[in-house]
Design a protein around this nucleic acid. Structure first.
Length: 587
RNA sequence: GGGGCCGUAGUUAAGCUGGUUAUAACGCCGGCCUGUCACGUCGGAGGGCGCGGGUUCGAGUCCCGUCGGCCCCGCCA
């Protein structure tokens, strides 16, 4: 570059800078070579500026510029000038001006990129990921990462100004039972032993509380070796926080203030104050899911009592029967209903009963089963109107709720009733403390084993674990769980009772959680916390459909990095040093 | 572990019930062009259809397997 220094970036110059000498550096976005005049749109992360190579200004500089191609890197030195009348480009923020090139340097050449560096072309994801560094040059991708920085900064500013300390926790830690599958790291110095990458810094942040560092936060990478989804990557980032001497309502208050702050600082969006709240039971009752999208109504209705004596055996014999009304949905064709039937089968539904409310009659394969009384009760409970369609699901309560919950989302998507630009957070509270695992025939902690039961609910732990509610809370945004936390157990007695219910013997507890149990005996303060999924939050805020779009170097569904080809085989020597031997050595 | 969608020039796509030399646009290469802005214009090169089998006189087209990408169920406290 010699002594050339960039004086401005490519979105900076305007008519106010006319006449100034400037130096820009960037990439060739578009080349328009007229033979006599050459126009280049020069791009950097901020934007585009048109630079003009004019033989009347510098013939030699113009002559050299014929070699310029897409994505060449150059530095131009020249004078800002107002574009001639009628030549201005209102679609470009710098469209009022251009830079007459007096001299320029080629900083680097570039191969023809495998795909154009523009937003308006859809490139297959595998090609994008193979050339991720080029993909990230595209404005949309770049914007997402810049936005992510801005939002993260807002979080840091908020937390710092609220007396939180950003504290680190180990990446190499120990594997613990419960929860997701761990990523393991073999130890060379302790052959046969393994570290685990943290699923979250859960225990360390509790230990910080015991240390007296009473407000902790960390923007931290977490690792879970489970199957991927559009909103799940094997490594992801949490905004993790923990506070001492607080109860549930205080954590929720400060957490939602942080979320409001982030939205306001980055999008100028004012979220409701306070966020609405639903109990877990109410969420399941109304929406079928514990992560309800409340941007639209269409609640589920429990009609078990109405059809308890129905002639329709499926309904009268099911423990739960619920209905979902799609207003003005009676126009759905047989084919569309068949598609929906296929859709619900994913969730274990055997079929999908429906009734179209027509002015003269109810049109339905099952209408004949209902008595006049039952029809009236249904019409009233469901506030049925002409040209509505009602869908039903009967059977196992979990299946019924899940199926209709997802059907509700599917119908909303198909009928486009969701306001895509709105953000509607909702707290879900009063989760069950335990969940019964039918396969393993034991209780699991629904949140995690360090979650405190609600006051008085510890009575149920030994006798009726299903009745115990937890001091746990999730924050749901537009149908995505973006955060969750709990008040923690802070006495060793309660922690032991919890392990007891979970079937973790005192020997196992001592060997795997001994450090926590011991620490709880040295004056552990009451404490509580929450963690937010930063990737999901940024995904929603940027209107992205996958967290891959807000992660710089994401993995594919098979957890591979197409750019670096990770994971990869390692040498026999490396394995030997680690005391490992592959069971099957292919190739 | 399972279900669904998809792999055709560098890219994005078309290619019907199998039928001559596999289309197009953009990109790329070369010529012309002093006011373009996804410049224009004239000309040119480039793939054998993810890979491997099979059916057939004949296979991007049908079948089987396999690899890869995406969506989902299970899984993810």
């Amino acid at each position: 570059m010699g002594d050339w220094r960039r004086s401005h970036h490519c979105a900076q110059l305007s008519s106010a800078d006319t006449g100034y000498d400037v130096t820009l550096m960037g990439w060739v976005q578009f080349r328009r070579d007229h033979g006599g005049l050459i126009f280049i749109d020069l791009r950097d992360r901020h934007g585009l500026t048109q630079v003009v190579f004019n033989p009347a200004i510098n013939a030699e500089a113009h002559e050299r510029a014929h070699v310029l191609r897409s994505e060449f890197v150059l530095a131009v030195h020249g004078k800002v000038r107002l574009r001639p009348e009628g030549m201005r480009n209102p679609t470009l923020s710098t469209g009022e001006i251009e830079v007459d090139v007096h001299d320029w340097k080629l900083l680097n050449t570039a191969n023809t990129p495998p795909f154009p560096i523009e937003d308006r072309v859809d490139i297959s994801e595998s090609t994008r990921l193979e050339y991720r560094y080029l993909d990230l040059r595209r404005p949309r991708c770049m914007h997402n990462l810049i936005f992510r920085h801005t939002a993260t900064l807002a979080a840091r500013n908020f937390l710092t100004s609220n007396d939180f300390l950003e504290l680190e926790t180990p990446i190499l830690t120990r594997s613990t039972p419960e929860g997701a599958r761990d990523f393991l790291v073999p130890s060379r110095l302790n052959s046969g032993n393994f570290y685990a990458l943290p699923q979250s810094p859960q225990l360390f942040k509790q230990l910080y509380m015991i240390s007296g560092l009473d407000r902790y936060y960390q923007i931290v990478r977490c690792f879970r070796d489970e199957d991927l989804r559009a909103d799940r990557q094997p490594e992801f980032t949490q905004i993790d926080m923990e506070l001492s001497f607080v109860d549930q309502s205080q954590v929720m208050d400060i957490a939602e203030r942080m979320i409001r702050h982030i939205f306001y600082e980055t999008l100028s969006v004012s979220l409701p104050d306070p966020f609405p709240r639903l109990t877990h039971a109410q969420a399941i009752a109304d929406y079928g899911l514990d992560k309800p999208d409340i941007r639209f109504d269409m609640k589920l209705h429990d009609i078990t009592d109405i059809v308890r004596h129905s002639n329709f055996r499926l309904f009268s014999s099911s423990p739960l029967v619920k209905a979902l009304v799609l207003p003005q949905g009676a126009h759905l064709s047989r084919g569309e209903i068949d598609q929906l039937t296929d859709f619900v089968s994913i969730y274990g539904a055997k079929g999908l009963a429906w009734i179209k409310i027509k002015p003269t009659a109810w049109q339905s394969p099952i209408a004949k089963f209902f008595s006049e009384q039952e029809r009236n009760a249904l019409a009233q409970t469901l506030t049925l109107k002409n040209d509505d369609i009602v869908f039903f699901q009967a059977g196992d309560p979990d299946m019924v709720n899940n199926t209709l919950g997802y059907l509700r989302l599917e119908l909303a998507q198909r009928t486009q009733v969701i306001n895509q630009s709105s953000f509607q957070p909702v707290w879900i509270t009063d989760f069950p403390l335990f969940e019964w695992d039918a396969a393993e025939k034991r209780w699991f902690a629904r949140h995690h084993p360090f979650t405190s039961p609600q006051d008085g609910h510890d009575e149920f732990m030994a006798t009726h674990p299903e009745q115990a509610l937890a001091k746990a809370y999730d924050l749901v945004l537009n149908g995505y769980e973006i955060g969750g936390g709990s008040v923690r157990i802070h006495t060793v007695d309660m922690q032991n009772r919890m392990f007891n219910v979970l079937g973790i013997s005192s020997e196992e507890a001592a060997s795997k959680f001994g450090f926590l149990l011991r620490a709880l005996q040295y004056g552990a303060p009451p404490h509580a916390g929450i963690a937010f999924g930063l990737d999901r939050l940024i995904m929603l805020m940027t209107g992205s459909s996958s967290i891959r779009d807000v992660i710089a170097f994401p993995k594919t569904q098979k957890a591979a990095c197409l750019m670096t080809q990770a994971p990869s085989r390692v040498s026999t020597m490396q394995l030997r040093e680690l005391g490992l031997k592959l069971r099957e050595q292919a190739g």
